[in-house]
Simulated assay, not measured.
Amino acid sequence: MRTADWIPIFQQSISDYHQTDQVDTPVQNPFTKGSLEFLMYEKNWIDTVQWHLEDIIRDPQIDPVQALAIKRRIDSSNQHRTDMVEYIDSWFLQQFSSVPVTDDASFNTESPAWAIDRLSILELKIYHMQQEATRPDASEVHRAACSAKLDILLTQRNDLSAAIDQLLSDIVAGKKYMKVYKQMKMYNDESLNPVLYQQKK
C-alpha cells in the first residue's frame, strides 16, 4: 500500500478518459471490484469527469439552462467524491483495525483518503499542465511558464507521496491512529438546507 502503486492507476484512469474526452463516457474500471485498486481508479475517474465539467461551466458563451444543469451535476459529483473518500478511509480503517496503538500514538489532522484525494487531483493538474507545456499552438512564453509550473507540480507529487507513505507507515506501526469523520454536508440534505426545507412548509 504505497503511492507508487496508485499513481499509475490515476494515470491510467486519466488516459482512459481522454480516449473520448467526453464527460458522459461510462467508466470501465479494469480492476477487481472491491479491491483497493478498483477504488483508486473509481476515485480518479470521478475527479477527472468533474475536472472537465468545471471546464465546461466556465465557457462564457454557455447557455444558462445548460450551466444550471452542469452546476447541479458538479454538486452531485462533489457528493459522490466525498462518499468515495469516506469509503476508502473506511477500507483503510478496516485494514488497520487489528494494529495495536502505542501509548504515545497521535491523531493526524488529515486522513489517508483525503490526502489521496489531493494526490488524485494533483495527477490531473500534472496531466493538463503537461498538455499546456507542449501545446503546439501556444506561444513559447506560455509553454515556458507551464513547464515551470509543471516542475513545481512534480515536486509537489514527490512531497505529497512521501507524506502519505509516511502516514500509512506510522499507522501500520501504531504510531498514529485514524478515524472516519463523515463530512455531514448540509446543502444536499433536504432536512438541513433551509432553502429546501422551508419550501415544504
Rank of each mutant, 00 (worst) to 15 (best):
I164V: 13
Q22C: 10
D151L: 12
Q183D: 13
K71L: 02
V101P: 01
Q94A: 15
S111C: 00
V23C: 09
D170G: 04
R157A: 12
E86N: 04
A145G: 04
N29A: 11
D165I: 08
I56K: 03
I171P: 04
H142P: 02
R118Q: 13
S90D: 11
A162S: 14
S35L: 07
Q199W: 01
V195S: 06
N193D: 13
Q95M: 12
K200W: 06
Y187T: 15
Q19P: 01
S90C: 12
L39N: 07
D75W: 03
L124F: 00
D103I: 12
L150K: 01
I56H: 00
L167H: 09
F38S: 10
S191K: 14
T48F: 00
L93Y: 07
Q79P: 05
L53E: 05
L119M: 10
A133M: 06
N44P: 01
S169A: 15
D189Q: 14
D24E: 12
N188K: 12
I70H: 04
A148Y: 06
P30G: 09
V99P: 03
A113L: 04
T48E: 08
W6K: 04
A115C: 13
Q11M: 09
D104C: 09
Q95N: 14
D159W: 04
K179H: 12
N193G: 05
A173H: 02
I121L: 09
S76I: 03
A4Q: 14
I9P: 00
D104W: 01
M40R: 05
P194G: 10
D151G: 09
L192F: 03
V195P: 05
R157Q: 15
Y187D: 15
L53P: 03
I164N: 02
P112H: 01
H142R: 09
W45E: 00
Q22E: 09
T20G: 02
Q61G: 07
L93F: 05
R58C: 06
P112F: 05
Q50I: 00
T3I: 09
D55Q: 11
I88L: 10
V101F: 00
Y17G: 01
V99I: 15
L36E: 02
Q130T: 15
S13I: 00
A69N: 08
S35V: 03
S139L: 08
T134G: 10
K149I: 09
A67N: 02
N78I: 11
